[in-house]
Design a protein around this nucleic acid. Structure first.
Length: 191
DNA sequence: AACAACCTCAACCGCATCAGA
DNA sequence: GTCTGATGCGGTTGAGGTTGT
């Protein structure tokens, strides 16, 4: 029955990574950089798919990665950003240095989603307020003269401007930083 | 002490998007 | 413009750990 079976991705190693695999992956990335993940997996002699290597690097091996001990400040920021962005974990993680999208997502699912649900039960209107907040976000952004680049979308919230670009703080976009922090302050009143 | 129920988090999967040929 | 492989993302799963009975 096993004859003539073509190689499949199911033949890759799965499950938890060993310390030796971690070491080999880190070594190869140190030399070749964190790209071409399939090549990296081959060079390292890891019987893992490229995706698996990337995930391991991004969530665990990457330099400066922080794991566990999410502070109150970070938690607060996650809550606020989730309110703005929804389940766009990579964007949220991008605002939390050293945190991975996977960790943020896990933390949300195991801790914060319950908190939020409880809060929403306590104040039934809060969900609607959240929508209002998002609408205000869009309207304010447009008022600030950013009508251009409004094509990409966030289907479930009817936000129709390019959130990725809007929240790209990486290129000295002080307008965004200041504006969002103002928004977050104003939004306090809705909680 | 033993077991069940629950929780956490690392890892996998499928899909969407991007980039190069 | 189209195709194909690579990459990135969010949802989901399951093993191991913790807590409650």
């Amino acid at each position: 029955m096993e004859d003539n079976v073509p190689p499949k991705r199911s033949e890759f190693n799965k499950g938890a990574w060993t310390a030796e695999e971690d070491r080999r992956l880190a070594e190869v990335i140190a030399v070749h950089g964190a790209r071409k993940w399939r090549t990296i997996a081959n060079i390292a002699g890891l019987n893992r798919c490229g995706k698996s290597c990337r995930l391991r690097w991004m969530n665990y091996l990457r330099p400066n990665i922080k794991r566990g001990n999410i502070t109150d400040q970070e938690e607060d920021l996650i809550l606020r950003l989730h309110k703005l962005l929804g389940n766009r974990w990579s964007l949220i993680a991008g605002r939390l240095p050293g945190r991975s999208d996977n960790e943020i997502k896990n933390y949300w699912n195991s801790h914060l989603s319950k908190k939020v649900n409880q809060n929403e039960k306590q104040s039934g209107a809060s969900a609607r307020q959240g929508c209002k907040s998002q609408k205000r976000l869009v309207e304010n952004a447009k008022e600030q003269g950013r009508e251009e680049n409004t094509s990409a979308g966030c289907e479930d919230s009817n936000i129709d401007f390019d959130m990725d670009e809007f929240f790209d703080f990486s290129n000295d976009n002080t307008f965004n930083v200041e504006w969002v922090s103002r928004f977050l302050q104003v939004d306090e009143g809705f909680n």
